[in-house]
Design a protein around this nucleic acid. Structure first.
Lengths: 83, 83
DNA sequence: AACAATACCGGTATAAGTATCCCGGGGGTG
DNA sequence: CACCCCCGGGATACTTATACCGGTATTGTT
């Protein structure tokens, strides 16, 4: 086994993250934010809907910057069991 | 064009990130930190050396948590041209 | 009413990339 | 010598990020 598939919990974590990003976007359109963050609208939509469970760090960093939210907050709130 | 290869700048960004993570690790061994962050030592070493240019968000988040550093700080300092 | 534009959704397809294990090598310390 | 730590390359299943398609709903225009 070279790389194990993502667990349901990891999928759920991705959904949580996407949900927070979608909330932070508010009224603005996907196209607008995606362009500002330097990514395609398709990709942003998939991240928001949780279909991309483990997006790249810089992808989320750029989004958080455009949306004006904290990466630390995103990480903490997306991981339920944080010691 | 389905997915364009990573640009040299993106590679450089990954190296910056890895360097900061390695600095934050300090004296502690790779094996120790990798175990604490829930990843293999091989992967952590590749991230630190910049051979993985765009690691997953939650991977870096877990590392930052173990190392006790800020994700926002990491993101900002890894992206040279921040408007 | 019919038409166009805008915004979101879910599926499919595909190149590029991650995360993992395996291997051998180098350097220090007891 | 044995042990520990770090390094770099190769191989590979799994995943991202992108583009394209048709479908739905809302809004505005003619």
């Amino acid at each position: 086994m070279v790389r194990s598939p993502l667990t349901p919990e990891e999928r759920l974590r991705g959904e949580q993250l996407g949900h927070m990003l979608r909330q932070a976007r508010g009224e603005r359109s996907i196209v607008e934010i995606a362009a500002a963050a330097g990514m395609s609208a398709e990709t942003l939509r998939k991240i928001e809907t949780g279909r991309i469970a483990t997006p790249a760090f810089f992808t989320i960093a750029s989004l958080a910057d455009v949306l004006g939210i904290s990466l630390d907050r995103l990480a903490v709130r997306a991981t339920p069991a944080r010691t």
